[in-house]
Amino acid sequence: MTDSKTTSRTAPMIRLDNLHKTFGSKTVLNGMNLDIPQGSSLVIIGGSGSGKSVTLKCILGLLAPDEGDIFINGESTLAVFAATRERTNRNIGMLFQGAALFDSLTVWENISFGLMQGEGMNRDDARDIALEKLVAVGMERKDADRWPSELSGGMQKRVGLARAIASNPAIMFFDEPTTGLDPVMGDVINDLIVNCVRELGATALTITHDMASARKISDRIAMLYQGKIIWTGETQDIDHCDNAHVDQFIHGKIDGPIKMNLRVA
């Protein structure tokens, strides 16, 4: 443990090195570089379809980049054995855009899924942890035995968050945590994310196009545009940065260097 602490000051927790990813003839990532220091919370902003989710899936090992390398804790995660990959994933908690709860399992079984299936914990202990996490995300213990389909979108997101933090991961990913929620519920989720990340001392990577959420969650912000990170800096600096793309994006202007491919039917 002490080893990783001393190296972490020099090496970032997550490093993306020259990532390329193409689907058919469509280039999504085109030489993406990004460092995420340990214990920091970084938000990647970018338009819809700019490749934010693809980036996350590459880091998680769900997609393989065509070129480039990904380092977690200083070690490359590409071209490793499945068992090594699984061990890495055990340290990662992920909140999916649509929560991605298993609809054949109850709320508490969802939350403790990784503990029971992945780590072989017995059901009683797993249920205790599930209840604890359920309370941590502001839900009630009696919700534990409900089914995901009975919950509202905001509650599903909370359960998804509880599932992501169940194994106390060192790294957390959030894919558009506030998309599809009303502003109040979105802010509740933002607060929960900030609290959970702080309590775990985790390194967090969030992708979103919701600027209010980005400002609240992040220490640093990076902007993804045309497959590259075109700007990165401290959150408070984003309002007076001199990058025209960033300026256009955060203020939602129509005029600017970002051209939408709007086809008139």
């Binding site: 998680l60 699984e86 994933n89 908690g93 992920m94 991605a100 298993f102 899924f113 990784g114 299936q117």
Partner: peptide
């Protein structure tokens, strides 16, 4: 995808 991230093949 969620299964994979929860260390379940």
């Amino acid at each position: 995808d969620a299964l994979t991230t929860l260390s379940t093949n």
